[in-house]
């Protein structure tokens, strides 16, 4: 099945599996996992440069911004002001106008502060950012974010790093029906079948970090995730059969002895 393109704000993406770059052993492993996953969108965090130890390598030495879409996030921001500050710094660091906007509302669950998220998204959209918001699995909030001008929404499957899989498939399905922009399931995926399910429901892409980086063998899991996302997408487009309570024979009765 050809011509299955993912386009967000006029940019075309090859892969429907997006990955985070945190928690890997080193940059070599990070790059190997990304390349094995076939991901062309990678998220990065914005942090202070270590000025006392300049021997530390730079992540961008490993990830050529010409080859990958570098998606800076505002991870760790608990206020609108902080999220704006990190987003503006990320843009000034010169990659692009893209930002994965996070405004976190609670330390233990890392659930988004959706009121703060909407407020920050409004301001950043006005400043010309392409805002991809990390949001709750709340269809009304997702719709508001789209109305503000977000060209995609990124609802969570489950809390960040929890590996619980899609906790609220019905809300996810409602979001997929309610918004007319790409939906990227972000956070909470634990294993390959979680990613497949998200794609089978009709998600446009899946973003994950811990599920790969935290696996016993991250490179093998990256490969599993690549196939999981592809299989889920293909199954979605192929159209599954309806569930029925009783059997339907698949061999003909005609010609039986």
């Amino acid at each position: 099945m050809s011509d299955d393109r993912l386009i967000i704000a006029g940019r075309e993406f090859k892969s429907r599996l997006w990955v985070g770059t945190g928690k890997y052993k080193d940059f070599v492993e990070t790059k190997k996992a990304i390349d094995t996953a076939g991901a062309d969108v990678v998220t990065v965090a914005v942090r202070r440069v270590n000025i006392t130890d300049r021997s530390k390598e730079n992540l961008l030495d490993y990830l050529d911004p010409k080859k990958y879409t570098i998606l800076p996030n505002t991870a760790g921001c608990y206020t609108v002001e902080d999220a704006l500050r990190y987003a503006r710094l990320a843009r000034a660091a010169g990659i692009s106008d893209l930002v994965k906007l996070e405004v976190i509302g609670d330390e233990r669950t890392l659930f988004p502060d959706t009121a703060g998220l909407i407020e920050a998204a409004k301001i950043l959209v006005k400043e010309g950012f392409i805002v991809l918001p990390y949001t709750n699995d709340d269809p009304v909030v997702a719709k508001k974010l789209v109305d503000i001008g977000c060209p995609a929404v990124m609802p969570l499957a489950a809390p960040i790093g929890s590996g619980l899989g899609i906790r609220n498939p019905y809300n996810l399905k409602i979001i997929l029906e309610m918004v007319k922009v790409p939906v990227i399931v972000d956070a909470g995926v634990g294993t390959a079948s979680d990613a497949t399910l998200a794609m089978e429901y009709g998600a446009d892409a899946v973003l994950m970090n811990t599920a790969i980086a935290g696996a016993r063998d991250p490179i093998a899991m990256a490969e599993a995730m690549k196939y999981a996302v592809e299989a889920g997408r293909l199954a979605y487009r192929a159209g599954r059969i309806p569930r029925k309570l009783y059997a339907t024979a698949s061999s003909p009765i005609e010609g039986m002895l």
Binding site: G20, T21, V46, R47, R48, I51, N58, I70, D186, N209
Partner: peptide, 23 residues
């Protein structure tokens, strides 16, 4: 403040070192 990009997925995680630019 001089900032750059480091590895990150979502949320702030302790292993990534000093995270504080703002509170």
């Amino acid at each position: 403040e001089i900032i750059s990009f480091i590895g990150g997925g979502a949320g702030a995680c302790g292993e990534l070192g000093d995270l504080a630019i703002g509170p």
